[in-house]
């Protein structure tokens, strides 16, 4: 059932990322997602970056429409759906791109987290100050405009009891072999339609990301050869990266 929300604030986060704050809070486990519907436009999955907020990057026509909403505008949400990250003391959180937003609730609920953030440039590293309030943060950017020059993988090895990863598929694929499978968790992103396990659109090696995921344990992620390799496009056919 869609839940009606009103936008209370539309805040720029740097780069092309914006957060929509809403007039209601969701009971959310870290890593879960909601489907956000703007009538007459479309409906797509977004991570909750706050219990009352979603963060998105204006990558497509729909995110652009969504991020154009003004305070007072209506939006309809359903969810939260899917699996979540475990909350464990001393976990290492690894985020890239707009996937960084999905880790913010987790960081706030984790004791002494270590947060590793990666992006192409400084403006892709969002929520830096908020993460710094929760734990130790290290940053890598490809152009060296913030933190170390390089990739998030260059920030490893990093001692940790658990590793929670959310970022673009390519980053996941690069991190998968570097982290201990039995102690790591990966949050995947796929194009979704029903978001409740029916239509199969979001499959990754036969697992439905909406219902089996979006957070998968490292052992399952190890067998998912589609990560960083291919996704199903709107018709259902494969799109290779």
């Amino acid at each position: 059932m869609h839940i009606h929300c009103k936008v209370t604030e539309n805040r720029g986060e740097g780069g092309r990322n914006r957060t929509l704050f809403l007039d209601r809070r969701f009971e959310v486990q870290p890593g879960q997602f909601v489907m956000a519907w703007v009538p007459g436009e479309s409906e797509k999955p977004f991570s909750l970056s706050y219990e009352n907020g979603i963060t998105a990057k204006d990558l497509g026509w729909y995110s652009a429409k969504l991020l154009d909403l003004k305070p007072g505008d209506s939006i309809w949400l359903r969810g939260p759906y899917g699996t979540s990250f475990p909350v464990r003391e001393g976990a290492v959180l690894l985020g890239g791109g707009v996937g960084i937003a999905a880790l913010l609730i987790l960081a706030k609920r984790t004791e002494d987290p270590v947060i590793l953030l990666g992006g192409r440039t400084a403006e892709e590293i969002i929520f830096l100050e908020e993460f710094e309030k929760t734990g130790k943060v290290r940053v890598a950017t490809e152009d060296g405009s913030l933190g170390a020059k390089g990739l998030i993988t260059d920030l490893l090895p990093q001692e940790g009891r658990y590793y929670c990863v959310c970022g673009p598929d390519k980053m996941m694929a690069a991190l998968k072999p570097l982290l201990p499978p039995e102690k790591s968790f990966f949050s995947l992103e796929r194009y979704m339609k029903c978001a409740v396990g029916l239509c199969g659109q979001c499959t990754c090696n036969g697992y439905r990301v909406c219902t089996d995921g979006p957070v998968f344990d490292g052992i399952t992620a190890q067998e998912m050869t589609d990560i960083g390799h291919r996704k199903r496009k709107k018709s259902g056919g494969w799109e290779y990266s």
Partner: peptide, 8 residues
């Protein structure tokens, strides 16, 4: 275009 499934 989405939404294509509704839980009503």
């Amino acid at each position: 275009e989405n939404p294509v499934v509704v839980e009503c």
